[in-house]
Amino acid sequence: MTQHTVRIWDLPTRIFHWALAACIVGLVITANVGGNAMVWHFRLGYTVLALLVFRLVWGLVGGRWSRFSAFLYSPARLLQYLRGAPHPEDGIGHSPLGALSVFVLLAVLAAQVGTGLLSDDEIAFAGPLTQYVSNAVVGLATNYHKDIGQFLVLSLVGLHVLAIIFYVRVRKQQLIRPMLDGDKTLPEAAAPSRDDALSRIAALVVLALSAGVAWWVSSLAVPAF
């Protein structure tokens, strides 16, 4: 049977994926260490904010299989996949179940970053947006960020890792290597994602603008005296 090697994940998407994973690990470590490590917790939080803004934009203009339109499935399509009757394209980019996990994880991370910007440990560190809301809102955001939000992030990351192990070991699907080199070996030809010099330059521009947004948010913090 003829096999087709297709570029599925463009370089910007792959860098985003691994950078986000590294930041999540760093955020968990710094949150639990506390103390002076919270300086890095904030820095990593702003980095995740920039990454999320980048992914939002790249989901609209990025490579073919990185766009949200490529894995925005209907509930019927998801049920069909869960019943063991997948669509031929379900194995190219994100599957319906994988797409659902991506959207949920991005939403939970956005909520975690957002509540972090509104949190206050009442000791030495406060998010840059605490001055714009009431104490009640700050309290709710802080409690969510420290408890519910952290639990949700860790749970979803754990499920994500377990799902990867299941698909690699049990279903013998390539998931890790394509996120490293960008290519998938498919039984049928498929439209590749654009991943040339011009698209990578565009990604750098989007990343720079996203970093600018994160920097602007961080600049809203009241200077400590």
Rank of each mutant, 00 (worst) to 15 (best):
1 M>W: 13
2 T>I: 10
2 T>F: 09
2 T>C: 10
4 H>E: 10
8 I>E: 01
8 I>V: 15
11 L>V: 09
13 T>H: 06
20 L>P: 00
20 L>Q: 10
20 L>H: 03
21 A>F: 01
22 A>V: 11
23 C>E: 04
24 I>L: 13
24 I>S: 08
26 G>N: 05
28 V>G: 09
29 I>W: 13
30 T>R: 03
30 T>Q: 03
31 A>T: 05
31 A>S: 15
35 G>C: 11
35 G>D: 12
38 M>P: 00
39 V>M: 10
47 T>A: 10
48 V>L: 02
50 A>V: 08
50 A>W: 00
52 L>V: 15
53 V>M: 05
53 V>I: 13
54 F>S: 04
60 L>I: 14
61 V>F: 03
61 V>E: 13
62 G>C: 07
67 R>I: 11
68 F>S: 06
69 S>L: 15
70 A>K: 00
72 L>M: 13
72 L>V: 12
74 S>A: 15
76 A>K: 06
78 L>W: 01
78 L>G: 07
80 Q>P: 07
81 Y>R: 03
82 L>G: 02
84 G>L: 07
84 G>D: 12
84 G>T: 08
85 A>Q: 14
85 A>I: 08
86 P>W: 08
87 H>G: 09
88 P>I: 03
92 I>N: 02
92 I>M: 04
95 S>W: 01
96 P>N: 11
98 G>T: 06
98 G>L: 04
99 A>D: 01
104 V>M: 10
105 L>Q: 08
105 L>D: 05
106 L>I: 15
107 A>M: 10
109 L>K: 00
110 A>N: 00
111 A>Q: 04
111 A>G: 07
112 Q>A: 08
112 Q>D: 08
113 V>T: 01
114 G>Q: 01
114 G>S: 06
115 T>R: 00
117 L>P: 00
118 L>Y: 02
119 S>M: 11
121 D>Y: 01
121 D>G: 13
122 E>H: 15
126 A>W: 01
128 P>D: 15
128 P>S: 14
131 Q>F: 07
136 A>N: 12
140 L>S: 13
143 N>P: 04
144 Y>D: 09
145 H>R: 02
147 D>Y: 09
147 D>N: 14
147 D>P: 02
148 I>S: 15
150 Q>I: 04
150 Q>A: 15
150 Q>V: 12
155 S>T: 15
159 L>R: 05
160 H>N: 10
161 V>K: 05
165 I>E: 06
167 Y>H: 06
167 Y>R: 05
170 V>F: 10
172 K>D: 14
174 Q>P: 03
176 I>G: 05
177 R>H: 13
178 P>K: 02
178 P>T: 02
183 D>F: 12
183 D>W: 04
183 D>N: 14
184 K>V: 10
186 L>H: 05
187 P>W: 12
187 P>R: 11
193 S>Q: 07
194 R>F: 06
196 D>L: 09
196 D>Q: 07
197 A>D: 06
197 A>H: 06
199 S>Y: 04
199 S>H: 14
200 R>E: 14
201 I>F: 13
203 A>V: 01
204 L>V: 13
206 V>D: 04
209 L>E: 03
209 L>W: 02
213 V>M: 03
213 V>T: 01
218 S>V: 03
223 P>I: 07
225 F>K: 12
